[in-house]
Amino acid sequence: MAFTRTDAVATTGRPAAKVSPAPGRRRSGRWTALAFLAPLVVYLLVFYAYPLYRNIELSVHDYTPRAFVQGDPEFTGLDNYRAVLSDDAFLAALRNTAVFTLVSIALQYALGLALAVFFQRGFRLSAVLRAMFLVPWLLPLIVSASTWSWMLNSDNGIVNAFLRAFGIGQINWLTSPGTALLSVTVANIWLGIPFNLVILYAGLQNIPASLYEAAGLDGANAWQRFWRITFPLLRPVSAITLLLGLIYTLKVVDIIWIMTRGGPADASATLAIWSYREAFGTGQPDFSPAAAVGNLLILIAFAAGLLHVRLQRKEGSS
């Protein structure tokens, strides 16, 4: 992490701090520090901790829309969780989440890495082209999602027109259960390539060129150089990239919701979509099961996050 490097800067800068005088003044310095930190602490409590608490509270009550306004819901304990976990749709959503997430991050990573290696050795226009690759990541999701929707449109989409030229009949990308999940996954991979490219490219910059020169002298070809030098040395960056990808992809709502609304017949409904739809997607908001699904999603993300922290520690200590 960049932060470990700057921590080191802070540590080397510490001798100057030794000059700072008397303990009394240090205590007032501490209060000053807390004053500077106070807005963030208040912010985290009010805008993160409290919504999270509300979410847990929602999930253990039976919140009807009326109870929502009047504030007198019935306490139901873990019933919502039980109902969610025993719902057939849960397993389907879990499977869709797994497919969507794993296929997305695997291909984003593979394509991002291939591109990063391609751009590793600079060439004419390489900086400009690399910058152009950021475009999908910078566009508002609604823009990308609606563009993909139109491209994949059954009757007038460019994708089907292109396939028709090869004699392939009409495919209902977004409206048939067999292809809906595939379609949103492809769009999501497209969205994620830039992020992977940028991070992996930055990681490649830190591999000493001398290693490649030495390998070249030993007669290693490009393939061997990649598998023996690039890939192993990039491992820490790869791990972080994949984990961040996992955490981000688990919670994706917009792209799927805009393209298919999780349909047809739940074919592209992930856990996040399920939660969103229960709470906001229908005329009848059902916040309690939605909150329960959302909390399960947090647990999954949290497990991934713990893995992230652990990897970071390991890298930091090595």
Partner: peptide
């Protein structure tokens, strides 16, 4: 604080949206 900020980034937006809605 580092840990809290990391966790904060992991919370799905839909969960935050429900929390904000309720508030």
């Amino acid at each position: 604080i580092d840990f809290l900020l990391l966790v904060a980034q992991m919370i799905p937006a839909v969960v935050m949206a429900m929390g904000f809605y309720a508030i």
